[in-house]
Amino acid sequence: MTADDLHLLNTRHSVPSRQLGEPAPDAASLARLLEAAVRVPDHGKLVPFRILTLRGDAKLAFGAQLTAMALAKHPDMPESKREKERHRYTFAPLVLVVVAHIHRDSTVPEFEQNLSAGCVAYNMLLGAQALGFGAQWLTGWAAYDRDVAALLGLADNEHVVGFVHMGTATMDTPDRDRPSVDGIVSEWTP
């Protein structure tokens, strides 16, 4: 093993969605990325996840509907937040919606199923970077709202894990400070 073997993990960072533009991965690259992204721990082989793609006019329509929902739910929203809602889906050319598909009749705890779906979202970030693209995993109010879930056509046993915005970075993104391993790792002793 060499230092280069962990290069992707050691350089992984999110690119803010506002700094993502064209192009997004083409069909072949996206297929390769998604095939890799679903290679996650999956206790019980349940495949407790699925993925929706948002792009083009559909992505913009989704963003407009979310804006209308947000304003209806919070009519006193400050103008700065209204502006953020209006533009949230106008930057990145591709948004992948990672959905947890929970098998409630399984002996595998729901928490583990959610972790599996979360790993798909994280693998998308790694895969995008490996292919030379930028990505950001976002949640926000829309990930937890059942009206948004209905808009996306989600079943009662499904919920959004995250919206992975993807495209080409339009500027360099400085890395942020990372935690010191010394401060978070300790050895357990009996």
Results as ranks from 00 to 15, higher is better:
residue 146 R to K: 12
residue 51 I to D: 06
residue 64 A to G: 09
residue 123 N to H: 08
residue 73 K to P: 07
residue 140 G to Q: 08
residue 58 A to Y: 12
residue 56 G to P: 12
residue 46 L to K: 14
residue 55 R to D: 14
residue 132 G to K: 08
residue 49 F to N: 00
residue 124 M to W: 02
residue 90 T to D: 15
residue 54 L to A: 00
residue 56 G to Y: 00
residue 127 G to P: 09
residue 101 H to C: 11
residue 148 V to D: 03
residue 119 C to Q: 14
residue 148 V to Y: 09
residue 119 C to N: 09
residue 149 A to S: 15
residue 104 R to E: 04
residue 104 R to F: 02
residue 100 A to H: 05
residue 79 E to T: 14
residue 91 F to M: 11
residue 82 R to Y: 07
residue 47 V to T: 03
residue 74 H to T: 12
residue 113 Q to N: 14
residue 99 V to R: 00
residue 64 A to R: 12
residue 57 D to P: 05
residue 92 A to H: 06
residue 86 R to K: 12
residue 55 R to I: 10
residue 86 R to D: 14
residue 57 D to C: 03
residue 75 P to A: 09
residue 105 D to K: 02
residue 132 G to N: 02
residue 147 D to F: 06
residue 64 A to E: 06
residue 125 L to R: 01
residue 101 H to L: 05
residue 59 K to C: 11
residue 72 A to G: 10
residue 148 V to T: 15
residue 79 E to V: 05
residue 96 L to D: 00
residue 103 H to K: 09
residue 134 G to D: 08
residue 71 L to F: 06
residue 128 A to P: 08
residue 53 T to C: 06
residue 119 C to F: 10
residue 56 G to F: 00
residue 141 W to T: 03
residue 100 A to W: 06
residue 114 N to Y: 04
residue 55 R to K: 15
residue 71 L to N: 02
residue 105 D to S: 13
residue 125 L to V: 05
residue 133 F to T: 06
residue 132 G to V: 10
residue 89 Y to C: 06
residue 67 T to C: 14
residue 66 L to D: 10
residue 69 M to R: 12
residue 94 L to R: 03
residue 96 L to K: 01
residue 128 A to M: 15
residue 138 L to Y: 04
residue 139 T to A: 11
residue 117 A to Y: 03
residue 118 G to I: 03
residue 68 A to R: 13
residue 142 A to P: 08
residue 89 Y to W: 04
residue 57 D to W: 07
residue 99 V to G: 01
residue 122 Y to W: 03
residue 93 P to I: 12
residue 83 E to T: 13
residue 60 L to E: 14
residue 117 A to W: 01
residue 123 N to C: 05
residue 51 I to T: 11
residue 63 G to N: 03
residue 117 A to E: 10
residue 99 V to W: 01
residue 135 A to S: 15
residue 117 A to N: 02
residue 91 F to L: 00
residue 68 A to E: 15
residue 62 F to D: 11
residue 55 R to L: 08
residue 137 W to P: 00
residue 59 K to P: 00
residue 58 A to Q: 11
residue 145 D to N: 14
residue 149 A to Q: 13
residue 121 A to Q: 03
residue 63 G to S: 07
residue 110 E to L: 10
residue 81 K to T: 11
residue 108 V to N: 01
residue 141 W to Q: 07
residue 72 A to H: 11
residue 139 T to P: 03
residue 100 A to N: 01
residue 118 G to A: 06
residue 86 R to T: 07
residue 98 V to Y: 09
residue 137 W to V: 04
residue 146 R to G: 12
residue 137 W to S: 04
residue 105 D to H: 14
residue 57 D to Y: 04
residue 102 I to L: 15
residue 97 V to I: 15
residue 143 A to C: 07
residue 103 H to Q: 12
residue 141 W to S: 05
residue 65 Q to T: 14
residue 52 L to F: 14
residue 82 R to Q: 10
residue 105 D to A: 13
residue 88 R to K: 15
residue 114 N to A: 10
residue 136 Q to T: 05
residue 108 V to G: 05
